[in-house]
Design a protein around this nucleic acid. Structure first.
Length: 621
DNA sequence: GTAGGGTTAG
């Protein structure tokens, strides 16, 4: 959008100018017949000051005055005045769509530019669907859309969620030959992406003759929405090797998010260096994303380094740091940081409290957690949301107060979701509360949100109580209800690539070496006193088979791969999509001593740091 | 006689 200088409005100047312009038009009216083509006779030296006056006006009263004068002087129907006037009302600086609609409806024969203004304005409004309707009206009245029209109306379809409209527009783009417009195609990619038509979005990208940084960024956002996080990293390489465009700060922001999700520390460091080289590391959002990336990769020192180096820290920076400390098991430090933040004059918000409360729950700080939960609404006026309740329920549940936690859920002001019930179910598993566990499963069924993992938890409760009959029951229930168990997946980053493992996985190119290494590790750990935990965690095999199957859990395969492929003493960082099991927890703990390796496992819930045979996380197994 | 695309951190 063109910058408009905030010139002061002068009514007298306006009157002078508009009467001058009107006089010229009147002159010509005597010479010409019909309403068209009269603008060509207006002299630019007379019209330009008036147009720039229209453009520089930024208040509604002044625009109303201009409106009145345009009508009074028969200048309203002049596209030369009408276009900037409409632009000022519909887009910049007023955005008054109602007013713009009234003005637009009075205009006799809008051209493509004026339709575009209106369609664009609809795309920015609460009624984007009307933009598409106006587009159709425009086609009916015989005005040909240009590629900007397509761009604006596609935007309307994105905002209104109209797949059908967008498909029609795409067909028309091809018909009108606008497919060489890169910006338009970028919008189209975004349209397909927002409708979860990822294949089509990628196809549009593939067919682009020239791709700039923004087009690549949209491709990244397509991958992110489509959970193709691993492919995002490849895009960075492709962009860097392209000769005409380079990753920008937006690229880096999304890449850092991808690295955080993937536990891809080395890649994240590479992005960090890139940010430093290009001066992006001064930006607050990049720093905040870096803090999150480092803490999600279990590398708190680096997260803290970035945090310390920031000249200015906002609530997001503090919250990122607090949450990072919390998820890595440094509950007391997180609380300390929370106090420091307030001393620094930064007010906490709801997400800060999520961080603080999760710090309490991850470190088992029951009293502190309750205290923060109460002070949150009383002192800071923040009413608890579902995440806050979740933390407190987790905290109470882990501390063995399962009934109290259950009562709290029933007294919540917000409707409990599946995560809340699942949290309680986890507590039931820890404290062998089979009856309550059954009730929770019922709640999950009511919500139509039960997953295989929930049944596994219930199964493990019965299994730990030695109730074979109930175990068989649950298995039958799962079979009847068609509950599929998806294999858990562990990932590990090695030389900038993400390696994926599932239990009993035989697909890795180095599978033979990995299995041999795992057998070797098992032998060494048994010497040091490791005994495979077979009570819970598996549900469809006998004890002997259990021991075999347990020894090939995905995280163990990932660890064996790391031991095999990295020099002694290198830290092992594994990310797992589900919860780590008791046995793998023990396995990692003993391995950290026997192999003198720091092991960091990030599972669905938290981090588990193992060093010298100890676990920094508060394990309530 | 002019207008457009991506990310929005925790």
């Amino acid at each position: 959008m063109r910058a408009i200088s905030p010139q002061r409005f002068s009514v007298s100047a306006f009157r002078r100018l508009s009467s001058h312009a009107a006089a010229r038009v009147d002159n010509h009216r005597q010479c010409i017949t019909g309403p068209t083509n009269h603008t060509s006779h207006l002299h630019t030296e007379k019209t330009e000051p008036l147009i720039s006056l229209i453009k520089s006006t930024s208040s509604k009263p002044h625009l109303l005055q201009i409106h009145a004068h345009l009508i009074r002087n028969s200048l309203f129907q002049h596209p030369i005045f009408f276009s900037p006037f409409l632009f000022g009302i519909a887009l910049h600086p007023l955005h008054d769509l109602g007013y713009a609609c009234r003005v637009f409806s009075k205009f006799s024969k809008p051209d493509v530019f004026q339709y575009n203004i209106m369609i664009r304005a609809y795309g920015m409004s609460d009624s984007p669907g009307n933009g598409f309707m106006l587009y159709q009206e425009m086609l009916r009245s015989g005005v040909s859309p240009n590629s900007l029209t397509s761009s604006f109306v596609t935007n309307c379809c994105i905002k209104s969620g109209s797949l059908f409209g967008g498909l029609q527009i795409h067909a028309r783009i091809l018909r009108d030959g606008h497919q060489s417009d890169g910006r338009l195609l970028t919008t189209l990619m975004d349209f397909y992406s927002s409708n979860e038509r990822y294949t089509e979005a990628c196809k549009v990208f593939d067919e682009m003759s020239h791709r700039d940084t923004i087009a690549w960024n949209v491709l990244i956002s397509v991958y992110m929405r489509n959970r193709r996080t691993r492919d995002v990293l490849g895009v960075f390489d492709m962009m860097q090797s392209s000769y005409d465009c380079q990753p920008d700060n937006v690229t880096c922001l999304m890449l850092l998010q991808a690295c955080a999700n993937l536990n891809a520390l080395a890649f994240g460091e590479r992005v960090h260096r890139y940010c430093e080289e290009h001066g992006f590391d001064k930006a607050m959002n990049i720093c905040n994303a870096l803090i999150t990336m480092y803490s999600r990769c279990g590398c708190l020192e680096k997260a803290f380094e970035v945090f310390k180096g920031m000249t200015e820290k906002d609530v997001v920076s503090w919250t990122a740091m607090i949450s990072g400390l919390a998820s890595n098991g440094y509950g007391r430090d997180a609380i300390e940081a929370f106090r420091e933040m307030q001393s620094a004059g930064v007010s906490p918000d709801d997400q800060t409290f999520t961080g603080v409360l999760s710090a309490c729950s991850h470190s088992g700080l029951l009293d502190e957690g309750r205290m923060f939960f109460n002070s949150m609404s009383k002192e800071f006026g923040i009413s608890p949301n579902i995440h806050h309740y979740g933390c407190v329920i987790d905290l109470m549940g882990r501390a063995g107060m399962v009934d109290e936690a259950y009562n709290l859920i029933n007294s919540m002001k917000v409707k409990p979701d599946a995560t809340i019930w699942r949290t309680l179910l986890g507590a039931c598993r820890i404290h062998h509360q089979a009856d309550l566990g059954e009730q929770v499963i019922e709640r999950l069924i009511e919500l139509k949100a039960q997953e295989a993992g929930d049944y596994v938890l219930l199964l493990n409760i019965y299994s730990s109580l030695g109730d074979r009959g109930k175990v068989i029951n649950v298995r039958k229930m799962m079979k009847d209800r068609g509950i599929q168990t998806n294999p858990a997946c562990s990932t590990i980053e090695f030389r900038g690539k993400i390696h994926e493992f599932v239990a009993n996985d035989f697909s890795h190119p180095r599978k033979t070496e990995i299995y041999e290494m795992l057998d070797e590790i098992n032998q060494q750990l048994r010497i040091a006193g490791y005994v495979a935990e077979t009570v819970a965690e598996l549900h469809n095999v006998g004890t002997e088979e259990k021991q075999i199957a347990l020894s090939y859990h995905s995280e163990k395969l990932a660890i064996a791969f790391a031991v095999l492929s990295t020099p002694p003493g290198t830290s092992i960082r594994v990310a797992k999509d589900l919860r780590i099991c008791v046995d793998c927890h023990n396995f990692a703990k003993i391995l950290s001593a026997v192999y003198s390796r720091e092991v960091v496992i990030r599972d669905r819930n938290r981090f588990h740091h193992f060093r010298e045979g100890r676990c920094s996380c508060n394990d309530y197994w």
